[in-house]
Every structure is written in C-alpha cells, then in structure tokens.
Amino acid sequence: MKFYRKQPLEAEQFDGSQTSLFGYEVMPDSLLDALTGEPAYYSILIDDFEPEPDDFPDDNEVSFEIGDWIVNEADEIKVMADEEFKQQYAELPVIPKAVADYMKDYNNIINLSFHSALYEAFDDLFAASQDVEHWIEHNSDVFARAWLDGYTVEEDK
C-alpha cells in the first residue's frame, strides 16, 4: 500500500489486466487499438441504477485507458492521466526511523516556542546523531518535504 499527500485517497493505475476496480467490473470498449488489437478504452459503471429519462446515458459510466489512474476520493470515482496524478498526489517520502524520531522529538520541543521549527531543525543538526546528520545533509529536500507533508518510515531490513 502506498500513501499520498492528500488523504484519504485510494488510487490504482490501470494497466489493462484488472477485471475490477474498487469493486466495479471493468468493461472493455469495442473500439480496438490499431497496433495492439487490445481495447482502446475501458469503463466501469459506478451506479447500478436505471438512469432517469433526462439523464445522459453516460452519467454513471467512467471511461479510461491504460496508464490512467482511477481515484476514489471521498466516495467519488474520477480518472486522471498519469502526469496529472503525479503532480497532484505525490507519494509521501520514506525516511529512516532515526530521522523520523529526530523530527518528532525536535518538533515537540520547537512547538513549545515561537521559532520556525523547520529552520531550527536544520540549524541544530550538530545536536543530532552522526547518522541522522549525514542522512539529512544528503537528503535535505526529502527531509523538508517529509516535515511539511508527512512521511512513511523506512521498513527495517
């Protein structure tokens, strides 16, 4: 399972092999790709009800193609192109446990004062263990992103 910046979010990238997404059956379109012979588009019916006469026939159908992301956010199904998804929903950074501990401890101390917590965390790196200092020195952008957006802790090897 992967975690993304905007929560709660469930998302799956369609690779053509899935037969269902979020419990909805994937249906191939009858239009075929000229090069591969595979369906060009796929769809899922998001509601199992008879549409009202004034509804458009596709109100309850979501269409997509291979490589698109199907996103279930707040019980709304939507489709996003790969680049759009990556821009909006970057994965949370993965950081070592020691760095996560430093961040938690330091953030708790700084929150008691009126200083800029992130600045102080960088400024006081000399007080951190050598491993933590080295990791942050070589991954400062990841550290800042983790501080601002959240993070997941690296699994033990």
Rank of each mutant, 00 (worst) to 15 (best):
M1D: 08
R5S: 10
R5H: 06
R5T: 13
L9E: 03
E10M: 09
E12V: 15
F14D: 05
G16A: 01
G16K: 02
S17R: 08
T19R: 10
L21S: 07
L21M: 15
L21T: 08
F22E: 05
G23S: 08
Y24E: 09
Y24I: 01
M27V: 15
P28K: 02
L32T: 08
A34H: 05
A34N: 10
P39G: 03
A40S: 13
Y42K: 05
I44C: 01
I46Q: 02
I46F: 02
F49P: 00
P51W: 04
P53W: 01
D54T: 13
P57C: 06
D58V: 10
E61A: 13
E61T: 15
V62A: 11
I66L: 01
N72P: 03
D75G: 04
E76S: 11
K78C: 11
K78N: 10
A81S: 14
D82S: 15
E83Y: 06
E84S: 09
E84C: 00
F85P: 06
Y89W: 05
E91Q: 11
L92D: 03
V94M: 04
V94T: 15
I95E: 03
A100H: 05
D101T: 15
Y102V: 04
M103H: 08
N108I: 09
I109C: 00
S113C: 03
S116R: 04
L118M: 06
Y119N: 14
F122N: 13
F122K: 11
D123G: 01
D124N: 15
A127I: 09
S129D: 12
D131W: 01
D131Y: 01
I136R: 02
E137F: 08
N139H: 15
D141L: 09
F143V: 04
R145L: 11
A146W: 03
A146P: 05
W147T: 10
D149I: 01
Y151F: 15
T152S: 12
D156I: 11
